[in-house]
Design a protein around this nucleic acid. Structure first.
Length: 456
RNA sequence: GUGGGUGUAGCUCAAGGGCAGAGCGCCGGACUGUGGCUCCGGAUGUUGGGGGUUCGAAUCCCCUCACCCACCCCA
């Protein structure tokens, strides 16, 4: 017999999982919509050329490829692939529909993506991303709004300790240039630097040596980037970090411009919900190769990886269109948010609710029709009603209700039928009451209404 | 992709060459109109899979697969 476990890195979502997921998605979508982002969905499958070459060498390897079908399958060649993120499909859509989309296209997209990665904690081969992106503008207002939306979404979910780290690709390049790191070693220098908060200053130095970078270069780079990276989430610290790096890269025009952009983004974001969550982190690098300007990453103390990330990618749409369209975006990682919220027990009680409020017990096979008719009446009154399908012993039926968390059970037996009444038992209190059939709906609703007296 | 660890009942885990077990859960009954509490009874299974050593393997060896941890990378 075949294994019944889902494929490696893939998951089934049972009812309780789906309730938590739809809750989080709903909160995030609500925030995104209040910022004026419009919904977009794109296919799970893209032509493989659309994806190749957009994510760097590492990314290319992690794309789930789909073999050619039919007689060409034996060739082992792939012509399609599952989407790797939502940013590249957006860029393709912007290029494809350039004539009909508005000048500034702000969209959100909450869909699964696939990566042929090795699964780990908070890391799966199929996972949802919650993206917001804005195309058509180079203004730092875009970055400020992205930061604000991401931070507000996290706040709405109940996170009070999320930090949004901010850096700029041109500033990183400038520091490395001025420090004398050859251009072909920039990647190595950034990968090592990105691990600063994990392995510490000495660890990064050691890694610089093994990657063939001169130790004194490491001291210089770390002196200017590393020290700043370890500062707190305070506006004064952010300003001081930028001042320090600006003095270092004084003659490097692109870096100076990048610093000015970061200052503007910080100043604008200070007027938004992101005000107290932004932290300049000059060691932030991010792996995706398409970023060109500001880069951002959302972190919390108790998860090693990030809960989301984003940045400006002014060159990506141009790869499909031949004509540059500026863009920037941010992506919240649903799975990791769920992992942390689960560990911290951050879900509100109401989403644990069961599917039904009322179970109608089945007396015998002949009364099944009556049970369905009663269910219809109660449902029309707004109650969530389940009918027990088999004429099992009442004990079993009550046990089923208790096991599935349905709080109320209705029994219409011979005695009740003769009297035109129903028996209603509240499993939470164990209390039981006979009520006239016509008043059952109101009585049930009354039981379900939380008692407000005393607590309000 | 690299290194280490763990795989035994639905779940959590014992047994470390000699009849595969416990707790919880599940099913049935005590209770033929009522869940939880109690008591009684029952079924748990190719010990992840394959091969080898042995009179005999859950146990020792080899291979393989899955999961966990640390790297690498990422949301």
């Amino acid at each position: 017999m075949a294994s019944t476990a889902p494929a490696r890195g893939m998951r089934d979502f049972l009812p309780a999982d789906v309730r938590r997921r739809t809750y989080v998605i709903g909160v995030i979508r609500g925030v995104y919509e209040r910022y004026g982002f419009e919904p977009l969905e794109t296919p799970a499958v893209e032509n493989i050329e659309t994806l190749l070459g957009k994510y760097g060498d590492e990314g290319n390897q992690l794309i789930f490829k789909i073999l050619k079908r039919g007689e060409h399958e034996a060739s082992g060649q792939a012509d399609l692939a599952l989407r790797y993120d939502l940013t590249v499909p957006l860029s393709r859509v912007v290029a494809e529909h350039r004539g009909t989309l508005p000048k500034y296209f702000k969209r959100y997209q909450i869909q699964p993506v696939w990566r042929a990665d090795r699964p780990a904690r908070g890391r799966f081969r199929e996972f949802y991303q919650c993206d917001v992106d804005a195309t058509g503008s180079t203004s730092p207002v875009v970055e400020a709004e992205l930061c604000a939306a991401a931070c507000e979404a996290m706040q709405a979910l109940g996170f009070s300790d999320a930090v949004l780290r901010l850096n700029h690709r041109a500033v990183l390049t400038g520091v490395l240039d001025v420090a004398g790191v050859p251009a072909d070693k920039h990647g190595d220098a950034l990968v090592a630097l990105d691990k600063l908060d994990k392995i510490g200053l000495d660890g990064v130095k050691a890694e610089y040596e093994t990657r063939g970078l001169r130790p004194e270069v490491a001291d210089t780079v770390l002196g200017i980037l590393g020290a700043a990276a370890l500062s707190g989430v305070v506006a004064a610290d952010n300003a001081a970090a930028l001042d320090r790096v600006e003095a270092f890269v004084a003659g490097h025009a692109e870096a100076v411009a990048g610093i000015a952009t970061m200052r503007t983004v910080l100043a604008l974001a200070a007027r938004t919900p992101a005000a107290h969550q932004l932290r300049v982190d000059l060691s932030l690098a991010r792996g995706l190769s398409y970023y060109t300007g500001c880069i951002m990453e959302m972190t919390v103390p108790d998860l090693a990886g990030s809960l989301g990330g984003g940045g400006r990618y002014d060159g990506l749409v141009g790869m499909f269109l031949g004509q540059a369209v500026p863009a920037a975006g941010f992506s919240l990682g649903l799975e990791r948010i769920l992992v942390v919220m689960g560990e911290r027990a951050m879900f509100p009680a109401h989403i644990a609710a069961t599917a039904a409020d009322v179970l109608i017990a089945q007396w015998n096979a002949d009364t099944a029709g009556d049970a369905l008719a009663l269910a219809h009446t109660l449902r029309a009154g707004g109650l969530r009603v389940e009918v027990y399908p088999d004429a099992d012993k009442l004990g079993k039926q009550f046990k089923y209700a208790a096991a599935t968390g349905v709080p109320l059970v209705v029994v219409e037996g011979d005695d009740e039928r003769a009297a035109g009444e129903l028996t209603v038992k509240d499993l939470r209190t164990g209390e039981q009451q006979r009520v006239p059939r016509a008043q059952a709906g109101a009585y049930l609703k009354d039981l379900l209404t939380p008692v407000a007296s005393g607590s309000l």
